[in-house]
Design a protein around this nucleic acid. Structure first.
Lengths: 206, 206
DNA sequence: CTCAATTGAGACTATTTAGTCTCAAACCGT
DNA sequence: ACGGTTTGAGACTAAATAGTCTCAATTGAG
């Protein structure tokens, strides 16, 4: 065994990219085009990185995508945390969440939820690790919504005809529908009426 | 201009495939794997056709896919016609439709709705013709559901708190969610609870 | 039987694309 | 200034894949 200078930080040429910025740009690209339709050239162009640097820093395309999914998951969890967990009124948070879903889905450049997009893209692909990440992220969102519904009920903000889990599942279905239909650029009325259905679940006419 | 024997049916070697069977097999393949992930070799294998024959009969891959979408659309319209239009009780038809959505989404080998799958796959692709077909098929389904809801109301089978169009949109959202979530193999409870939400719209507790 | 017409089999081409390799450029501690 | 180290630029490779071309096989008409 040759003795190797253990983890010695050498000097070396300075990077011309920021790792975090690059990851953000990669995420945006995957978000808009999906995994398969994003080529390495797309990623190099978006991140401004050299080919070799991308492979050195992030590994191959799939590994980069995996990191992007983690980043998106963290971002999304943060959003739910702010809206639901940190909100003194969980019901107001849930309302705001539905509003966010609707308004996002109505935006002209809406690209859907990256996690749901990816579930669709990888549904027919054998890749347990990626699918685990995607399903875990989905379960996290489910948990956050169940929790918020439960607290809203406990606080007397909301009366439910079904259990929090059952209602949360309907809300998740709404999110799924809005994410995809918004991405398909369907008529805005369709988006709006689906969101209205979700508001009904939250005791809309009050 | 040379005079060409106009449309003369020559003798020629007989085909070793049935055009309709081949289209059906192509549809099944696209259905399971999606457009992009279905290779020409997949199609040749599934249809049993020779390469040249496929190009002669169906044109290129995209043209074949276009024909498959037409076939699927016709099949789906037929299903809705049988369930909703031809049903003396439009409400019973709508209930059966939701049941069908749920039970399909729970099947082990469920592949989703080809039309919705394709909308997802082509959302970020510039192809107005394909997208037109997909959106038209979606609008057909919307129309059939609105119509059934209206007739159910007119027959006094159903009382709605929103207009038929609004409720139909919520049902379409449910279909979208069940199609995709079923394809992702989520927990059956999620499928079930989303379907239950749809039944609520149809005046479930009766 | 012979010939024109059509199909089937498979070789072939061109393009895209993920991933590797080579080497010069840029840096820092000595 | 020198040498070790890391990065950047781009050539290169290998594989997949859509689409074309060639030619033999198979048929019915005359």
């Amino acid at each position: 065994m040759k003795e190797r200078p253990p983890t010695r930080r050498g000097p070396g040429r300075p990077r011309e990219f920021d790792e975090d910025d690059a990851l953000e740009e990669a995420m945006q690209t995957f978000w808009v085009k999906g995994f398969t339709r994003t080529s390495l050239d797309d990623l190099l162009c978006a991140t401004g990185m050299a080919r070799q640097s991308l492979y050195r820093v992030f590994g191959d395309k799939r590994a980069l995508f995996r990191k992007v999914l983690d980043r998106y998951g963290a971002m999304h969890r943060g959003m739910l945390q702010t809206l639901l967990q940190d909100n003194p009124s969980p019901l107001a948070g849930l309302d705001a969440l539905v509003d966010l879903w609707e308004s996002s889905a109505l935006e002209d450049d809406f690209s859907g939820c990256l996690n749901l997009n990816s579930l669709a893209e990888f549904a027919a692909v054998e890749d347990d690790e990626i699918q685990d990440v995607l399903h875990t992220n989905l379960a996290d969102a489910e948990g956050a919504i169940i929790d918020a519904l439960s607290r809203a009920v406990a606080l007397g903000e909301l009366e439910l005809r079904r259990t929090p889990t059952e209602v949360a599942h309907s809300l998740l279905g709404t999110a799924q529908a809005l994410s995809h239909l918004g991405r398909y650029r369907v008529q805005p009325a369709l988006i709006h009426n689906i969101a209205a259905g979700a508001r009904d679940l939250l005791g809309a006419p009050r």
